[in-house]
Amino acid sequence: MTSCHIAEEHIQKVAIFGGTHGNELTGVFLVKHWLENGAEIQRTGLEVKPFITNPRAVKKCTRYIDCDLNRIFDLENLGKKMSEDLPYEVRRAQEINHLFGPKDSEDSYDIIFDLHNTTSNMGCTLILEDSRNNFLIQMFHYIKTSLAPLPCYVYLIEHPSLKYATTRSIAKYPVGIEVGPQPQGVLRADILDQMRKMIKHALDFIHHFNEGKEFPPCAIEVYKIIEKVDYPRDENGEIAAIIHPNLQDQDWKPLHPGDPMFLTLDGKTIPLGGDCTVYPVFVNEAAYYEKKEAFAKTTKLTLNAKSIRCCLH
C-alpha cells in the first residue's frame, strides 16, 4: 500500500463567511444568496454554514464600524470581559468565536472560507496562513488546477512579526479568498463568478477527501510576504508620492531593483532599492491607505505537500 500522510479526520463542519468587511460585496451577495438557497454549497455528509460576519458594517456598506474585524481574533480580544464599552467588532468577534470556535479547541469548525474583495488587480487569490499544512496545500492545488487556465495565486502570510489574527483563524483550516479588482461597494459579475467557482472547487475537494480519495504528493507556487511598504510621506505625515503608473495593476509581476515604484507630484520617480527582485501584491489597495500600506513585497517559492487521505471509520 502506498505510504501517505493521513489527515486527522474527515471534514464535518464548514463555514463560509461574507461581510467580514461590509463594503466587499461579492461575499456579502453570495452568502445572502446561499442563506436563501444553499443547494449549490451542500455536499453529502458535510455541514456547510453561510454566515454574515459583520452585519452592521454590511448594512452601512462600510469596511467596519469601530475597528477591523479581520485583525482582532487574538486571545487578548477574544478574552476581554464582555461589555457595551467594547468596540462593536470586538464584541462581534467574541460572538463569532462562540459560534464557530472556540479558537484553538477541538470544537472549532474544521474549515472557514472568508470571502473578500480587493481594489487591487490580484485576480483569484487564496490566502494561506501555514506553509506546513498538507491538507490546505492539497486543497489549493486542486482549486488552482480546477480553475486553469484562469490564474489563481496563493498568498502566504506566515511571518515572524506580522500577526494578522484573522476572522477565519478560529477554524482548524483557515482559508482566505480574495478576488479583484473590484471597487468597494460595487458588485461585478465576473468577480462574483470567479469567487463562486473557487468555493465550488473547494467544496468538491472536501467531498472527494471525505469519500476516501487519496491525493498524491503535489507542489504549489506561493508568494510569501516579506514586508509592507508605506507611501513616501512629508514631515507632516502626508502622502508625498503615489503608486507609479508602471507599478499600478502589476500585482504578482516581478519588481526589480531600480524599477519605478512611486511618483511625486513634481514628476520624480522613486525606484525600488535593494538588490532583490520582489513580487508586489495589494498594490494601491483602497482599504490600506489608513493602514499606511502602499503594497506588500513578496518572494516566490514552492511548497510541497505529502499525499493525504481521509481516515475512514
Rank of each mutant, 00 (worst) to 15 (best):
S3Y: 07
S3D: 11
C4S: 15
I6G: 13
A7E: 14
H10F: 11
Q12A: 09
K13D: 05
F17T: 06
H21V: 09
G22W: 13
G27I: 01
G27D: 01
F29P: 00
L30E: 03
L30M: 08
Q42E: 09
R43S: 04
G45T: 10
G45K: 07
F51E: 06
A57N: 05
A57T: 05
A57P: 04
K59S: 14
C61P: 05
R63D: 06
C67N: 15
C67Y: 09
D68C: 06
D74F: 08
E89L: 04
N97G: 11
L99Q: 09
F100M: 07
K103E: 07
S108G: 12
H116P: 00
N117Y: 02
T118Y: 02
N121L: 01
C124M: 08
F135C: 01
I137E: 01
F140Y: 09
K144L: 15
K144N: 04
S146Q: 11
L150G: 06
P151N: 11
V154T: 06
Y155P: 00
Y155N: 09
L156D: 04
E158Y: 03
H159N: 10
A165M: 12
T166D: 08
T166I: 11
I170Q: 05
A171Y: 03
E178T: 15
V179G: 04
V186D: 00
V186R: 02
Q194T: 13
R196Q: 07
K197N: 15
M198K: 00
D204W: 00
I206V: 15
N210W: 04
E211C: 07
E211N: 14
G212C: 05
F215M: 05
I226G: 11
E227I: 02
V229D: 00
R233I: 14
D234Q: 08
I239Y: 04
A241I: 03
H244V: 00
D249V: 01
K253R: 15
H256D: 10
P260T: 04
M261A: 14
L272C: 13
C276I: 11
T277H: 07
V281T: 14
V283W: 01
E285F: 03
E285Y: 02
Y288Q: 11
E290G: 15
K291E: 09
T299P: 00
K300M: 13
N304Y: 09
A305W: 00
A305G: 10
K306I: 10
C310L: 11
